[in-house]
Amino acid sequence: MGIAAILFWFLSALTIGGAIMVVASKNPVYSILYLIITFFAISGHYVLMNAQFLAIVNIIVYAGAIMVLFLFVVMLMNLNAESEPPQKKRYLFFAGVVAGCSLMLVLVAALKSSSSQIQLVQMGSGDVGLISNLGKVLFTDYVFPFEISSVLFLSAMIGAVVISKKEVVHPE
């Protein structure tokens, strides 16, 4: 077993364990911290597949910006394990778990005998994911969607400001 295989299994265990703890932990702050661990493990997977640009973007955007936003919101609301809304109906909880596990069972059964299992993922080599290649593709073929995404960000920013603005109540 080579170093790439050991790293793959370690990062996979970290990813799945972090994802389970996101769902299982009572305190939302702990959930967010476990989600950050999961995102770092996924970034490790990207590095292992030599997709370096996506690994960096994943860390900057997800672990850096989005998770800090979540953490700010949770801390502003002062949420903890006591303020967690209780799941009153136990059968709904078990129904959710059974539904998710059934979906996983069906997909595993459908995919385990697929013909793609002989295909190998190229690890640690290949220059596809390097910044120079992706930048060339992004700024030649995909420059129009790239500029459109700036409009999307502008509208998202305006939308967030409008939604979270305090409503002025006019006295009659």
Binding site: F8, I20, V23, G100, C101, V121, M123
Partner: peptide, 27 residues
């Protein structure tokens, strides 16, 4: 690494996300 390992890893993470959406009540 065979592609199957990545398929099953993503499937596991996706199904954990679905279980979380269905069972938790904190938005």
């Amino acid at each position: 690494m065979p592609i199957n390992y990545y398929i099953f890893l993503s499937l596991a993470v996706f199904c954990i996300g679905i279980i979380g959406v269905l069972t938790r009540r904190n938005s």
